[in-house]
């Protein structure tokens, strides 16, 4: 799979993402500056984490207006794959490619710690190497990860099987104690209606090497590489 990573000023997890993609796919992803307008024939576009435009105004708001986003929209519209992690997820919602919005964490504090994500479905291009209902560890590192959408939208997402991951205990239970940022219905990641655009807050890319504390995130990149 040919992958590219979009670089906005202030993005800072592009190296982590490149390592994870190359580790599973064997190919270095293309790095794409936000002022470019052409994505070429990429199969997967990744918007990594960070603080695009300093998170000023709202997280992701200014990046969503960047020149490259027209190309990302066209890429998604033709059914190609998009992955947005953390700030990337925020940008995808601001750009209207995914519904809802990410608000300040309910604690009003930045949260940097491991969390467990429950896999809500294991049959999308991103999750075939996981089992449905299993949990995996990912790194949370955000100040604005509190997923919000109105009830009708949440009902629709659930009804259409578009919830990708939920915050859970290690054994897969959903509870407010492990939904640290206060997300609606414990949602940590969602898909577009064709299941080809995935946005998620925690970082699978920071757990792809045993030396860094585990490889819980590697199946996600293995699945993408194999698609």
């Amino acid at each position: 799979m040919k992958a590219g990573i979009i670089l906005f000023p202030g993005i800072n997890r592009e190296r982590d993402m490149a390592i994870a993609l190359e580790n599973s796919g064997g190919v270095k992803p293309r790095m794409i500056w936000h002022k470019e307008t052409d994505l070429g024939d990429l199969d997967l576009v990744v918007i990594p984490g960070g603080f695009s435009f300093g998170d000023y105004l709202r997280c992701g708001a200014m990046a969503a207006q960047s020149p490259i986003m027209a190309a990302v929209r066209a890429h998604a519209a033709r059914g190609a794959y998009v992955l947005g992690v953390c700030n990337g997820f925020q940008i995808l919602t601001e750009a209207g490619l995914l519904p809802g919005a990410l608000l300040r964490n309910a604690s009003l504090r930045f949260l940097s710690m491991d969390c467990h994500l429950r896999v809500e479905r294991a049959n999308t291009v991103f999750t075939t190497r996981y089992q449905q209902g299993q949990t995996f560890r990912a790194v949370m590192a955000h100040g604005d990860g509190n997923y919000f959408a109105d009830d009708a939208t949440l009902d629709r997402l659930e009804g259409e099987g578009r919830v990708a991951f939920r915050y859970a205990t290690a054994t897969g239970e959903i509870s407010p104690e492990v939904n640290l940022n206060g997300s609606a219905r414990s949602i940590a990641g969602i898909y577009s209606d064709n299941l080809r655009v995935l946005g998620m807050m925690p970082h699978p890319e920071d757990l792809v090497d045993p030396l860094m504390g585990g490889i819980d995130g590697k199946p996600l990149f293995d699945a993408i590489a194999a698609a």
């Binding site: 105004l57 708001a61 207006q65 919005a101 608000l103 919000f148």
Partner: peptide, 9 residues
Amino acid sequence: RKLLANTVI
């Protein structure tokens, strides 16, 4: 509408 506010929230 376009930038300063996110009308979702």
